[in-house]
Design a protein around this nucleic acid. Structure first.
Lengths: 136, 136
DNA sequence: TATAAAAAGACAAAAATGGTCCTATAGGTA
DNA sequence: TACCTATAGGACCATTTTTGTCTTTTTATA
């Protein structure tokens, strides 16, 4: 239960790799994919989605590639994980207050909310900078 | 991310229903399924798996059905969830120490361990008795 | 024995996961 | 301008997981 998917794993590997690069350097997707052992086209999709929300910058054409869009110290693990896997949400009930018809009677509801908060707390407390430093 | 599946939801609904019954009473799968609005045969599978690990008792033949296998106060939400969804394990790495080749270099590892512990802590702290009482 | 009810196992549709491949677009460079 | 390089976007697809159903078997009771 609650497993991170490959996509999530790959996303983390990819962004940690970028964080380990000298500041300002752009890396080719081919380079990144090989280094972190992830299928290239799949990783490309992931980094593209990161580009859209600004946690990485991408450059097209010759001399292009990817780099972080923000200092690694200001990218949290939570952002990265939620970007590819969607919001942390242990139970569908949490999506909206009116969504679940069993809402009022459902005593499990507050438990999931608690779980959600705890997980978010942990992931918010870890930056990509820390992760990059740890495994250098 | 980290969503409970239908199976998990159904499992909780089913066991909470059993917990709300007068002690000693057995309920037909048809009765339970209708009450908690879960497909009967699917719920049957779930309760059968509960019977195997002893958190419910089942009786075959006329007058048969299901009842809790233990006082609801001694069945935790964690047990129920893990019974149907498998162990709480946010990252595959946590399965075994040698399983992940990136193990030594993987700085994310301890974070997932932390997440796992927090979640387990919450779910261990909630009994089926509490849930049953809450939504009565 | 007949009947009632769970147990077990095979099967299957639908959705999610984990990708691939092709074309389009943007940016350099000769 | 023409050409090359590299990401962007979209269509597609195989496999696995989820979410069930259906049939047969086993067990218990009356």
């Amino acid at each position: 239960m609650m497993e991170l998917t490959r996509k999530g794993e790959y996303a983390i590997r990819g962004i940690v790799y970028l964080a380990q690069l000298p500041p300002g350097k752009v890396a080719l997707i081919s380079e990144i994919a090989e280094a972190v052992e992830v299928p290239q086209t799949f990783l490309a999709k992931i980094l593209q989605s990161f580009a859209k929300i600004g946690i990485v910058n991408s450059f097209r054409g010759a001399g292009g590639g990817f780099m972080l869009g923000r200092p690694a110290s200001r990218i949290t693990l939570r952002e990265v994980v939620e970007a590819v896997e969607g919001p942390i949400m242990p139970n569908r009930c949490l999506i909206g207050s009116g969504t679940c018809e069993r809402d009022s009677t459902c005593g499990v509801h507050p438990v999931w909310r608690e779980v959600q908060q705890r997980v978010v707390e942990v992931l918010d407390g870890v930056t990509i900078e820390e992760l990059a430093a740890r495994q250098k």
